[in-house]
Design a protein around this nucleic acid. Sequence first.
DNA 1: TTGAAAGCGCTAACAA
DNA 2: TTGTTAGCGCTTTCAA
Lengths: 342, 342
Amino acid sequence: MPEKDLPKKSRRSTGAMTLRDVAMLAGVAPITASRAINTPDQVSAEVLRKVQEAVLRTGYVPNRMAGGLASSRSRLIAAVTPSTVMTVLMGTIESLNSTLFDAGYQLMLGQTSYSSEREEALLEAIIGRRPDGIFLTGLLPPGKSRTLLMASGIPVVESWDLTPTPIDMLIGFSHTHIGREVARYLAGKGHRQMAIVRANDERAKRRAAAFRDELLQLGLPPVVEVDVQDRRSIQSGRDALTQLQQTAPDVDAVFCSSDLLALGVLMQAGVLGLKVPQQLAIMGFGDTPLASDVAPALSSVRINGEEIGRLAAQYLMARAEGRDVASPTIDVGFSVVARDSA
Amino acid sequence: MPEKDLPKKSRRSTGAMTLRDVAMLAGVAPITASRAINTPDQVSAEVLRKVQEAVLRTGYVPNRMAGGLASSRSRLIAAVTPSTVMTVLMGTIESLNSTLFDAGYQLMLGQTSYSSEREEALLEAIIGRRPDGIFLTGLLPPGKSRTLLMASGIPVVESWDLTPTPIDMLIGFSHTHIGREVARYLAGKGHRQMAIVRANDERAKRRAAAFRDELLQLGLPPVVEVDVQDRRSIQSGRDALTQLQQTAPDVDAVFCSSDLLALGVLMQAGVLGLKVPQQLAIMGFGDTPLASDVAPALSSVRINGEEIGRLAAQYLMARAEGRDVASPTIDVGFSVVARDSA
DNA sequence: TTGAAAGCGCTAACAA
DNA sequence: TTGTTAGCGCTTTCAA
């Protein structure tokens, strides 16, 4: 009966070390052990030493579920991202995660597909964890999910877009401005008959619309548009160019909704023997590492996804800690990166 | 004083609805409301109706921290992945996450960089959340982290590799077999002077070693090896081929440690005017969507990352729910996908 | 600086 | 089928 002298454990416990065990070993009250661990300068050197030793000897790892329940601070942040664009978001997720981690927070991942029921279920699941903040990719349109979120009172950062009516905080950039600026850029290079190759995505559509409008204003011919739906692949970029060659052979510049599509167009141009950018200029979007590395190098629109992640983390943590943020909306901007392809 | 008749709230609460509120509204005890929500068939139709209505009216979302604390089941699974290979792992993470989500679990993400202190800090942070399971990319070598994990008693799945001594469960494949099989494949195609282009990664090294050994056994010349360190980019594949052309111009086949590197070699071969696969055969690894879409299409080694994620989710949930798994180790295998480039 | 008491919101165990 | 009681492991509050 070696347990004889140990504190009597309830039959429900998991057997893991608790603060109580550490406190007993150190000969102090649980709350004192808690202070030694969380706010060491509220405690005498002697107590600190004893508690630290007890922690080491027991291998104690504080239970954050219990801590979170008691303090109403979970130190958990949830990120909601559409699984279709994970590739593009990786930089953002990584910087979000590492900024949070360095400050003692953890990241929970929620991936949305396309059903709105699943989206609601996801948000319920997230809210059930009582995260200290929620990071959303894109904007959340009015609807049940938005209502649910606002009712929860949890700090929210929407991202990768701008709107005058965010749920809470917003870190993004203007897709309209991008469409316009790319239009001016390509027009400035002397291209006249332009095309859009894009996925079926609300933000890509907005870039496309602005691109179209701006070219119209510049007196250039109407833009030809290819919608690749959800096929966001190189192959689908290649197919798009094949299609363009048949339906609009005079196209001399293509603005793609992602670097991957642009890469496909670029490759197919190579296969067809089209000179890039002389016969066909190609512009991507996202400025993923791919863009700079291919030959000819791909011109693209650079978005600082890492900065979005970092700022979002800072904003959410500020709110979680009761601090206020200077401006609830940040426009991180973008830049057109001129390389060989356009 | 409109609060007069409401249940007296402690000053510490966050104000969110609790099970108690729902129960009072439905006119039942909290535990009955809990049953109506979690195990509806343990409850009468009448009670079920009343509780459901109360949930709707209050907008109640159960607090899973409290539930987890009370039941010692967090319904949280943690995934630990090196940030360098996130691209390759996305399929795995996605299928892990969606399989878990459909069963009511959430995924926590932990990214490791290269410092072992940070790795320990990460594991402590994870264990602190008391997840029901932990998914590890790769194997965890003996050391503090491994000890910590084993001591925690949390179910673990290691992955993307095989070993006779896993921590707990293991879902992977043999890098040695891959190296050997690719060697035989390329030798079978008549290539003689082969090269390896690889990142500085333990598993890539093991594939390379097996590749080298097998070719030696087949009586072919020694393999030339280019180590690109941590530069896992297209550009670095291009640089590697440039280097190979100078140091070993007679190389007629290259086995790369990732599709991205292989794509770089492929592009540089195009720039140099080398005929692929006649003058230079190229084999990638991972069979990412890129591989099939480029021209010429890239031969590669296919790993079913989605299956790894799905199986890992099932294994971890089984353990979390006290069920046993049939075999603690699964070899999901691989396949050499022959396309144009080799 | 330290501690006792009282929860945080939920569920396991037992009883009716 | 429903309820009572007693925690889960921690932190807040208040007192010493």
